[in-house]
Amino acid sequence: MTPHALPFALLRHARPLLPLAAAITLLTGVVTSAHADTGKLLLTGGVSTIEGAAGGGLSPWAVIGTQATADETGFSAFASHAKTQDYGLNVAGAAVAFNNRVELSVARQDFNTGITGTLLGLPGLHLRQNILGAKVRVAGDAVLDSDSLMPQIAVGVQLKQLESSGLDDTLDALGAKRNGTDVYVSATKLFLAQGILVNGTLRATKANQNGLLGFGATLGGADNGYEIQPEISVAYLIRNNLAVGVEYRGMPNKLQTAGNAAGLGDGLRGGAWKDIFIAWAPSKNVSLTAAYVDLGRLVPATTNNKRQNGVYVSAQFAF
């Protein structure tokens, strides 16, 4: 497949964002009256994460997405697809940015449960999650402060809603909710002369597997409170439009105790997500990302305890 064909192939995987249509229409309408005419240095605004915020593929960074700089308004849209041995994930979304200070985003995730749904008597089960996000830059500028030790710092919030599905009774039995809120703070340091970007994020969350398996758990006395999870990204710019990097995203493991109480032993334990990625910007308005992902053991009770390794591809269009 040619690089130019990749975005269209990805868009065929993306499900329509029907529950988010009103929000996306609003974002698009705002941008038509004021859009980014100049633009940022390539890839310094990050790409779109699986939750819609700008950053890497897995973790948000402190950067504000789109091509908008100071006194500009920008818009971006993306489609992503991930495939492991037993599961598949399609994501699509959009974001709008104001004055390189505020970013609002929407995303819709569609998770194919594969063999797990089949063994639960729910063949073809898909878990769909809608995410609304907001991020505000509170200090620093990744590019303008690249010759100092000052990072760009941002705070963000993500409101997540897991749609009703055949898994509702199981989540209820485990004491997991279908909605939750993540709050995070990110610090991004760009060493422009060296072509290195480092990001650290701390996230307060109850999400099980990013929220695709609900939020929290109470069965068996599981800890149902918020946990602080670390997320780390490092990228190296091979040239101004090509970067390689790695990401690590910690995940709560609240379902392990609940699964044990349900007689599944460690069959619901979770672990960190990781990836090795390459991002290419063939133009200032288009970026393509490919990655090798390791999502740990997702519902090991139904997948013979296999690690879920696979591929991830994403296309972003930003203005």
Rank of each mutant, 00 (worst) to 15 (best):
D86V: 08
N90H: 08
F75N: 02
L89P: 00
D71E: 10
A68T: 03
G65V: 10
D71W: 10
A82H: 02
W61A: 13
G74L: 09
A70W: 06
H81K: 14
A62K: 01
A77R: 12
V63M: 12
A70I: 12
K83Q: 15
H81L: 08
A68K: 02
Y87H: 09
T69D: 13
T69S: 12
L89H: 00
A68D: 01
A77I: 14
A70P: 00
K83D: 12
I64C: 07
A77F: 12
T73N: 10
G65W: 09
Q67V: 10
S76R: 13
Q85S: 15
D86K: 06
A68C: 01
S80N: 07
G88V: 08
N90R: 13
V91S: 02
A77W: 12
E72I: 10
T69K: 11
T84Q: 03
S80D: 05
W61G: 13
G74W: 07
L89S: 01
T66P: 00
V91W: 01
T66H: 02
V91I: 15
Y87L: 03
A70C: 06
W61H: 11
A68N: 03
A92G: 15
A77M: 15
Q85T: 15
A79D: 09
G88K: 13
A62W: 03
Q85C: 08
T84V: 11
Q67D: 12
W61N: 07
I64K: 04
V63T: 14
F75K: 04
S76V: 12
Q85F: 11
W61Y: 07
T84W: 02
A82N: 03
V63Y: 05
W61P: 00
D86F: 07
D86Y: 06
A82Y: 03
